[in-house]
Amino acid sequence: MVFLSRTQVIAAIGAVLLVLYVLDLVRRRKLSEEYSLLWLISTVVVAALGFSTPLLVWVSRELGIVQENSTVFAFGLAFSLAMLLHLSVRLSRLGQENQALARELALLRHDLEESGSGRAPAAAPAADRA
């Protein structure tokens, strides 16, 4: 196999190691299948570009990129951005769910204190003053 540069090989090997690590994380239930999808696509694409010089040259020419190395890293960067956006969306949903849980908890606490023969609500402020 002919490689254009050392960085191409490093990127490809790095991507393969990352694929194996992602799969191991899924296996050990540290990463859910849902999140693995984007990681696996991105690392497989970067590895394919890194190991197949003809593919890399062709993609670079089609995209008008002069330096083939940049193509590998451009793809890596594009996937990183996609991953960050995906995480932001997830984080937003988690925040909303977290709020919903807190609201639910407030309602539950109210019901619990009401059902506790009305003693608990009166006792709480007293404890605060003391």
């Binding site: 799969l23 899924v26 296996r27 299948e33 849902e34 693995s36 999808l37």
Partner: peptide
Amino acid sequence: LYYPYKNLLASLMALLQ
């Protein structure tokens, strides 16, 4: 689209566990 991917991967991982 997500269903086959998820279930195939999860099945293989269940085998490796």
